[in-house]
Amino acid sequence: MNNIVTEMSGAASVQNKPAVNKAPIFTAKNVDVYYGAKQALDKINLDIPRNKVTSLIGPSGCGKSTFLRCLNRMNDLVDICRVEGDIQLEGQDIYAPEVDVVALRQHVGMVFQKPNPFPKSIYDNIAYGPRIHGLTSSKSELDDIVEWSLQRAGLWKEVSDRLQEPGTGLSGGQQQRLCIARAIAVRPEVILMDEPCSALDPIATATIEELIDELREKFTIVIVTHSMQQAARVSQRTAFFHLGNLVETGATKTLFTSPEDERTQNYITGRIG
């Protein structure tokens, strides 16, 4: 196996050293988000721990996606959207004027609700990120990254013999794994996932959930989900949003077994939502 890939695994073990591990990778302080005059998020304070899966849950319209999209500034694309407060990635304010959103998104990747592969070949889908970010200097390095990413996304076996076929020709679950492979190919620190399984059948969902658990080793993952079972299965920490407020955060187990807030209690027992 090639250098880069071994180095990448090496990098992960470095990251796993307790010394680096402690500080949260993202810290959000007093985040308010407005769509025009309408306030969608109210004073959100949330830390995202490194190399863990954090799930965001809550009833529809409570602002989960909005918060998630603040973390890599995808909200910039919405003209009327305004973000106030302080969000730091590794101690740097990501809304600071000198920040280049493009560079930010290289470090904070995203997987969307509906699989959205480019209508290009499987290979080009994955090679696109490394190409535009200038991560490789030769074709063979690029080949290695493509293979590594597909392997990490558990898709290599299924597609290794048809890399030049269009990515849009894969099944829904395969497409979503392709999107995950595409996201990790640029070696981000954090991967944001907005309901990544909502368009998939249970078997494909299970595959992705396993994948998320494996990816945790190397990446920090934030996932929005409507399924409490899914949150319980894949995440170590959970944050419960309600009507634009962050009601409660904690270790997933504690939050689901002994929630502190009544609203959380009602939600996980199915009384609101």
Partner: peptide, 18 residues
């Protein structure tokens, strides 16, 4: 062209021009 294509590219860290 569906917006999901734009989102996919931007989400990877492509610039709007790219």
């Amino acid at each position: 062209v569906p917006p999901s294509i734009r989102e996919a590219a931007l989400g990877m860290g492509a610039s709007p021009v790219q």
